[in-house]
Design a protein around this nucleic acid. Sequence first.
DNA 1: ATTATATTTGCGGCTAGTCTAATTAAATAC
DNA 2: GTATTTAATTAGACTAGCCGCAAATATAAT
Lengths: 216, 216
Amino acid sequence: MHSFSEENYLKAIYHLGADGAKISLTAIAEALHNNPASVIDMVKKLTEKKLISYDKKKGAKLTNSGIKAAMEIIRKHRLWEVFLLEKLGYKWDEVHNIAEQLEHVGDSGLAERLEKFLGFPDYDPHGDPIPKADGKIAEVFKTMLIEVEAGKQYKVVAVKDTSAEFLHYLQKLGIGIGTRIKVIEKIAFDGSLVIQIEKNTNTTISNKFAENVLVS
Amino acid sequence: MHSFSEENYLKAIYHLGADGAKISLTAIAEALHNNPASVIDMVKKLTEKKLISYDKKKGAKLTNSGIKAAMEIIRKHRLWEVFLLEKLGYKWDEVHNIAEQLEHVGDSGLAERLEKFLGFPDYDPHGDPIPKADGKIAEVFKTMLIEVEAGKQYKVVAVKDTSAEFLHYLQKLGIGIGTRIKVIEKIAFDGSLVIQIEKNTNTTISNKFAENVLVS
DNA sequence: ATTATATTTGCGGCTAGTCTAATTAAATAC
DNA sequence: GTATTTAATTAGACTAGCCGCAAATATAAT
C-alpha cells in the first residue's frame, strides 16, 4: 500500500498527463499546492518505487504500475462520488472534497463491492468515466465549450474544474451533466460567449468559464 | 478537526474508561500498540487541547469536549460498520478494519447522512449501540458470558474483542448477535464453560472466550 | 521498612513530509 | 551570444508522531 501523500502525487501526475503535455516539477507543485523543493523529494521516492520515471527534460511520467495505482485511486474516488450524490444526497459541488479522503481508504476489494452496490456506474457526477477493475477507462469524446462552433447544439458531458465555486456557479446557471447548450455568439474582444442554456434566454459567460465546460 | 492520531487516542481512552478503571499511560500504550514514551507526548498535546485531563495518580480522563469528539468517531465507526455489512456484503469479521479508516473521514454531516441512509440503526454488527447525533448512547445491559449463572438461557448482544480471529471463531461455532446460549456447566479447574448454542449439542469454550461474549 | 517490580518521564534520535532560502542549470529574450 | 527570466536542485530546518534508553517515582511484596 502507498501512503496518503504518495497516492495524491500519483493522482496529480495522472491528471496532469491527460493532455500529453510535459509534467514539470513546478506543475506538480502547483497542482498539489506544494513547494517544488518538496516535490523533488517525493519524485525521487516514487522513482525508486518504480511508480514513475523522471527526467529533467522530459518531466515525470507514470510507469505501468504507476498507472495501475493511479487508476485504482481514481476509481475509488469516482465511485465514492456517485455514492455520496446518489445515496447520501450530497450536492454536486460537495462530493469532491469528501471523496478526496475516501479514495485512500481500503483496498481494491472495497472498490469492487462499492461498484456492485452502485450498479456498475460508468460515469461519476462530474461526467468523468469510472475506471473498471481491470484499469480500463472509457475514452470520452469531449471538447471545451470555448472551442465548439457557434449555432450547433451540444450536450454537457463533464466539467474540468471541480472547485466548489465553479460547481456552485454552474448550478446557479442551471448547467449540469446532460444540459443542452447552444453557442449563439463568440465575442472576439475578450473571448466570452453568448450561450443558450436549454431553451432559456441567453446568458454571457467568460472564456475561462467556457474552458471548463466540456461538451460533445 | 483533529488528526488521525489524536482521534485514535481519544477513541482508545474512551474505550479504556468504559469500566471506570484508571487509565494509565501504559494502558493507552498497550491499546494502541505504542511506546509509553510516545503516549506521554500525545497526552500532553490532548491536555493542552483540553480534550482530556491527566494526572499521574488518577490517570487520563476525557473532558466534555473530549467525550463529544470520541463519540463522533465511534458514531462514524459504527455507522460505517453497518454500511459495510448491510450494503456492501462484508462479513462480520471484516468490517472492523475498514471502518477503522472510514471513521476519520468527513465531518458530522457525513454521519448524519449516513445514519439516515441506513435507516437510523441502533446497533452496529457487533451489538454495540450507535451514539446518536447529540452524543447520547444507549446503555446496554450486558454481562460477560463467564459471569452468568448456569442453566438459564441468554442472548448474545455484543462481543468485546473485535479481532478477525475471534470473530472468525465465533462464526465457526455459529454464534452471532441474537444467538441464544445456555451455560450447562462451569468447570472449576480452568474456568472453561460447557454451553449449548441454540438447540445444538454442547460445546466447550475457554474462559478467555467466555469473557469476550456479552449476553443479556 | 526494605526490596522488588512497575510506571512515569526526560532526552536524544528517527522518518515522512513539508518549508525557505540559496544555487545551479536551462530556456528565452534581446 | 550575452543577459534575463524561469525552472530545477541542494542545503538546512521544522513538525508530527513515533522509538529506545535510562533515571525517577510509585506501588506492591516480603
